Simulated scan of single mutants.
Amino acid sequence: VVGSLLCARGNRGLAACGMLAATAILVLGVIAAARLGGADFPDVAQLAPALVAGIAMTCATAAGVPSRE
């Protein structure tokens, strides 16, 4: 939702910030789930999908935000 709200403006900077915020929320969710499960920090295999998706979407939005017509 955070990423979508900031991408709706059509501004590359806001879109990239939205994707970074969305990635941070995903990573914090994975960390919180690991903490609730009894671990101090999640394994890299648990964090990798959120980080890879976040980096890919941030690069995609920085390359060009689709126009809303």
Rank of each mutant, 00 (worst) to 15 (best):
P42E: 09
F41W: 10
P66V: 01
G13R: 00
A63P: 07
F41C: 01
D43P: 06
G64I: 00
G10I: 01
A62R: 12
I25N: 04
R35Y: 03
A63I: 04
T61I: 04
A8C: 10
G38H: 08
G54V: 00
G3E: 13
L28C: 14
I25W: 05
G64M: 03
G54S: 09
A22N: 04
V52Y: 01
P42A: 01
V44M: 09
G29L: 04
G3W: 01
I25H: 03
A24Y: 13
F41T: 06
V52T: 11
R35H: 09
L14I: 07
V1F: 14
A48T: 04
A63G: 14
A34S: 09
A62Y: 06
A8K: 15
M19R: 15
P49F: 08
L26T: 06
A16S: 12
G3L: 01
D40W: 15
V44W: 14
A22G: 05
D40C: 07
P66D: 03
V2A: 14
T58D: 09
A63S: 15
V52E: 09
A48W: 02
A16W: 02
A56I: 11
L5N: 10
M19E: 15
V1S: 10
V44G: 12
C17W: 08
R35Q: 11
V30C: 06
A21C: 08
A15I: 11
A33G: 11
L5V: 14
T58H: 08
A62P: 05
S67N: 10
P49K: 02
L47E: 05
G18I: 00
C17D: 12
G64V: 00
T58E: 08
I55C: 14
I55G: 12
N11P: 00
A39M: 06
A39P: 05
V44H: 03
L14C: 09
M57I: 08
P49A: 09
L28M: 08
G13Y: 01
V30S: 11
C59W: 01
V52M: 00
R35C: 00
G29N: 09
S4K: 11
L47Q: 05
V65G: 01
E69Y: 01
G13P: 04
V52W: 03
R12Q: 13
A15C: 10
A48Q: 05
A22R: 03
A48E: 09
R35T: 06
G38E: 10
A8P: 05
G13A: 10
G64R: 02
Q46D: 14
T58M: 11
Q46T: 06
T58G: 13
L36I: 15
G13H: 10
A34I: 07
D43L: 06
A33L: 12
S67R: 13
L47R: 02
V44D: 14
V52L: 10
A56D: 12
A22P: 05
